[in-house]
Structure formats: structure tokens, C-alpha cells
Design a binder for these strands. Structure first.
Lengths: 196, 196
DNA sequence: CGATACATGTAAGAAGTTACATGATTGT
DNA sequence: ACAATCATGTAACTTCTTACATGTATCG
């Protein structure tokens, strides 16, 4: 009965609500102003999705008291919501995830250290790294096999995909190193990872 | 009346049908066996999408004669379909495309040299390059601004996005160079681009 | 007083997902 | 005869998109 039929947008909402109680409006702002917007940024998707999550008991809402502004409905995660979120975060990473649902993996990673701790985040990265190492060579083979039956731009588009995966693989190494440094900080560097 | 309400899957089909007449089954095989599968690979999406395209007069089908196998319905592009495809391929690339619809851009590129010629493919690459050059710095700024209000994994996920864009930018340079080399081939190199 | 930002929603329609149905042909 | 592959489709369901509706509070 732990029905996992929650959309990506639903999980994105679950993960954000977990970080701290927020309103639908707050959530929408996050979606419109960050790359998370790929999971939809329209009220016509967000409010119904929140309703569904509440109906399933994964989040609860309370109308914010006091203030003078229009009523804000603040959502927070329930224990059942935490369980669902953890289950999603801990699902093993498959070939299909890497081939077709790479944003879902990145979304899961984005929430993983708050929910599962550093160890959980590192585990996900290592899983991903392993799948990438296995997957990339198969992509290269298929480009070589198909390059002559498609237009040059088709072949180049495939190559762009390969390069994106290679860049992601390089990033997993950076990210793992960042976490390891955080856990054994010989010299404390005050700030996080560099943006380039 | 040139209603542009065609889904991404629809355009993917249009582009493939343009290359040579194919059946729904052929198309499905392409989707299940290549990264194009991100645009859906289920018969429940493909057959209805083909039907819609045919109703709009963008493709036509004929039942393949002869043979002995079950009837195959072969689709080919109509002149109206060519027009619609060209219009889509030539749409200017916007910030929003780069931020949220990068697969659509790559899909467009994949078809552009067959439909628009080398010059069209190069134009698209240059457009994309220009948008990337403008967009990437804004992403870096927003990471720096937000990095302290989000978990480390959140910040790292954003950085992974930046790195993907940087890798795409590097690829545009490779792709442009490949086309320029093709147009002025001092020494003919027989084969296409290297897969790594 | 009008514009803007805050804040939540709904309705109609398009398009995808999963699962099933159907049928022909080929190989064992 | 049976399984596998070729080949096309349909039905139920879910969810997203676009566009609209509603209402409060603040600022100039």
C-alpha cells in the first residue's frame, strides 16, 4: 500500500516541504526562479499536486494565523511523507534511470543529504558513478554503429549526449570528493564547492 | 492557421518521417533503441500522435503493397509537413529554450542539416552558443547567491547543471568546426566526428 | 485610486502512461 | 502446434498546460 505513484513534481514538492514548512506560493516561486522549474511551475500543476499529497497523508497543512496578509496555507511533511521520501531517495539506480530519467536522479541527490545524511548522498553518487561508467561505453558503441545511417547533425547530437554524460561523471567525482572533505576536514575551508 | 500545437513527440516523428518513409513500428524501434526514447516509446503515444499528424495533413500514409507480412502503413511527409518542420527548426532560440527545453533544441539540431542544409545547422549552433554564453554566467551568479540557503547536495546539483551547460557549449564549438571542415575540405577525411 | 505583489484556486482540454487486444508470419 | 517477432491499435487513467477567477494588502 505504499503506492509509489507520485509524479516527479510530487516528489519535488515533498523534498522542498521537508526542508521547512512552506506555502504553495513559496513553492511556486522556487520553481519559477530556479532550474527546478523543469518540473513545472504553474499553479494549475502545483496546487492540485499538493492536494493529492495531502489526501495521501504525506503532507499536512495549517492556515497560518496572525499576520494581516491573505491566509497562507503552510504545508509540512508527515511521518508517512518522510517514509515515502526516503523510499524514493533510496531506490537503486538503474540503467533506465540513467538513460532516460537523469533529472530525477539529480533531484533525488539534491534532497539526499538533508534526508539521509552525508552517507546517503555519497551512496547515491557512487551508485550513479557506477552506472555511468557502465553506460557511457555502450553509447559510444551505438554511435559508431549508427553514425553512417544518419545525418551528420544526428550523429553530433548523439555525441553531445555522450559528452553530457561524461561531464556528469566528472561531476560525481567532484561531488564525492567534496563530501569526503566535509567529513574529514583537516583544514576547515569555510565555504562550499566552487561554481566552476 | 499554421497552428504550432504539435508536441515534441510529434516533431520527433515529423523529423524521422522526413528522412525516409517509415512505419509506426519502425519509428517505435528507433525510440526504444536510441536516446530519442526520451520523447516516449510507447505505442499508446506513437500511433495516436501519427494519427493527429495525418489529420492535420502533415504526413500521409499508404499501405505497403506486395510482400507477405502483415500490412505496414508507411508514412511520408507532405509539403505542409515540410513547411511545419522548417518553421519549427528555424524558430529563434530563446533563453527559456536553453533553460528548460534543451532537449528540444538538440532534437531540432539533429534534423536541421537534412532539412535546412549545412548552413541551417551552423546557424542553429551559433544561436545556441550565443544563448549559452549569455546564460551560464547568470546561473553561476544565482548559485553563489543561493548556495548558503540550501543543503550542500542542492548546491552541488545546481553546479552539475552548470557543468552540463559548459559541456554543451564546448560541444557547440566542436560541432561548428566539424561543419566548417566539411564545407572546405582541404584534405578529405573519410569519416565523421570522433565519439570522444 | 490604480498598479503591483501576495496568495489560492478551478475548468477545459491535450497528451502521455500502462496494460491489454488483435492478428499475421516465420521458425522449431 | 506453439512461441517469437512483426505490426497496429484501443481504453482507462493520470497529470500537465493554458487560461481564467478571486480576493487582500501595500505603495505611490
Amino acid at each position: 500500500m505504499t503506492a509509489q505513484d507520485i509524479s516527479l513534481l510530487g516528489f519535488a514538492l515533498l523534498g522542498l516541504v521537508q526542508q521547512k514548512p512552506v506555502s504553495g506560493y513559496d513553492l511556486r516561486k522556487i520553481f519559477t526562479s530556479t532550474p527546478m522549474g523543469t518540473f513545472s511551475d504553474s499553479p494549475g500543476a502545483i496546487y492540485p499536486a499538493l492536494e493529492r499529497l495531502e489526501k495521501r497523508g504525506l503532507i499536512r497543512s495549517v492556515i497560518e494565523e496572525g499576520s494581516g496578509l491573505r491566509r497562507r496555507r503552510l504545508f509540512h511533511l508527515t511521518p508517512a511523507g518522510t517514509v515515502a521520501l526516503k523510499q524514493w531517495l533510496q531506490k537503486p539506480i538503474t540503467r533506465g534511470d540513467v538513460a532516460r530519467r537523469i533529472n530525477e536522479i539529480l533531484l533525488r541527490f539534491a534532497f539526499s543529504d538533508r534526508v539521509l545524511g552525508n552517507a546517503g548522498a555519497i551512496a547515491l553518487l557512487q551508485d550513479l558513478q557506477q552506472e555511468l561508467v557502465a553506460y557511457i561505453p555502450t553509447l559510444k558503441v551505438s554511435v559508431r554503429q549508427q553514425a553512417d545511417v544518419m545525418p551528420l547533425s544526428g550523429a553530433l547530437a548523439l555525441i553531445s549526449g555522450i559528452k553530457q554524460y561524461e561531464s556528469l561523471l566528472a561531476w560525481t567525482r567532484l561531488a564525492i570528493a567534496t563530501y569526503q572533505q566535509r567529513q574529514s576536514p583537516r583544514k576547515r575551508a569555510k565555504k562550499g564547492p566552487a561554481a566552476s
